[in-house]
C-alpha cells in the first residue's frame, strides 16, 4: 500500500492531461453555451425553456458515465488491489453526485414550466434519485473509516454491489412505472418521442463533450490531491521510521 508505483510519472502525465482537459472544457463549454443559449432555435412547444436541456441531458449522461467508470475502478481495486483505483473512486464520487444533483435540479426547473410541476414520480427521475443515493452511500463509506484504505475498499464493494443492482433497480422502477402510470406524463412522451432536430443535437453534443472535459479536469485535480495527501502520510511514517 505504501509502495505506490511511480507517482511522479503519473503526476507529470496527469499535469498535461489536466491542462488539455481544462482548455478543451473551456472551449467546448463556451462554444456549446453559445450554441445552446443563442444560436439554437427555441422549441415550438416549450419555447425558450428547452435550453435547460443542454445542461440537463449532459449532466444525466455524465452521472451514469461516472458511476460506470467507478464500477470499473472498483473492479480493478478488488481484483488487482491497485491503489490508484481506490483513489479514483474517492475522487470521482463527489463529482458524480454533483452532476446527479445538477441533473435533478435542472430537471425540476425544466419540469415546472413544461409539466406544471417541479417533480414527477416517473421512472427516469426516480432512477436518477436512487443513483444519487448510491453516490451518497459511496461517499459516506469512503469517509467512515479511520483507515482511508479500508474506506476505499468498502466503497469499492458498495459500488460493485450497486452496479450489479443498478440494472435491477432500473428494471423494477420501470416496471413500477407502468403499474402506476401517472396521467400527467403525456406531455413528457410528447417531448421525448419525436426525433431530435440537428439544430438541437449539435449544441447538445458539444455541451456533452464540454462536460466530459470538465469532469476529466476536476477528477484529475481531486486525484492529485488524494495522491499528495497520501504522500504526506507516507512521508510522515518514513520520517518516524528514520
Amino acid at each position: 500500500m505504501f509502495g505506490y508505483a511511480n507517482p511522479k510519472r503519473y503526476q507529470a502525465l496527469s499535469h498535461y492531461i489536466f491542462i488539455a482537459a481544462a482548455i478543451l472544457a473551456t472551449l467546448f463549454l463556451s462554444f456549446g453555451l453559445y450554441l445552446a443559449l443563442i444560436a439554437s432555435p427555441p422549441d415550438y412547444q416549450q419555447s425558450e425553456t428547452v435550453r435547460i436541456m443542454y445542461v440537463h441531458v449532459p449532466a444525466a449522461w455524465l452521472s451514469m458515465f461516472i458511476y460506470a467508470s467507478m464500477a470499473v475502478a472498483a473492479l480493478v481495486l478488488t481484483i488487482w488491489k491497485h491503489t490508484l483505483a481506490g483513489f479514483y473512486i474517492r475522487a470521482a464520487a463527489p463529482i458524480g453526485a454533483a452532476f446527479t444533483a445538477a441533473c435533478l435540479i435542472s430537471g425540476a426547473l425544466w419540469g415546472q414550466p413544461t409539466w406544471g410541476t417541479w417533480w414527477v414520480w416517473d421512472a427516469r427521475l426516480t432512477s436518477v434519485l436512487i443513483l444519487f443515493f448510491l453516490y451518497l452511500g459511496a461517499i459516506a463509506l469512503n469517509n467512515a473509516y479511520d483507515n482511508p484504505d479500508k474506506g476505499n475498499q468498502a466503497s469499492a464493494w458498495l459500488v460493485l454491489v450497486g452496479s450489479v443492482n443498478l440494472p435491477i433497480i432500473k428494471f423494477s422502477v420501470e416496471w413500477w412505472n407502468t403499474l402506476h402510470q401517472p396521467a400527467s406524463l403525456t406531455s413528457l412522451s410528447k417531448i421525448t418521442s419525436p426525433g431530435i432536430h440537428a439544430d438541437m443535437l449539435t449544441p447538445l453534443l458539444v455541451m456533452a463533450v464540454g462536460f466530459l472535459c470538465l469532469y476529466s479536469a476536476l477528477v484529475i485535480l481531486r486525484l492529485d490531491n488524494e495522491i499528495l495527501s497520501r504522500k504526506i502520510h507516507v512521508l510522515r511514517l518514513r520520517t518516524i521510521n528514520g
Partner: peptide, 13 residues
C-alpha cells in the same frame, strides 16, 4: 518486524 498504527510506528526492527 515493525508495526504501524495510524501515523506512527509502535515498534520497529
Amino acid at each position: 518486524l515493525s508495526c504501524a498504527r495510524g501515523h506512527r510506528l509502535i515498534f520497529e526492527d
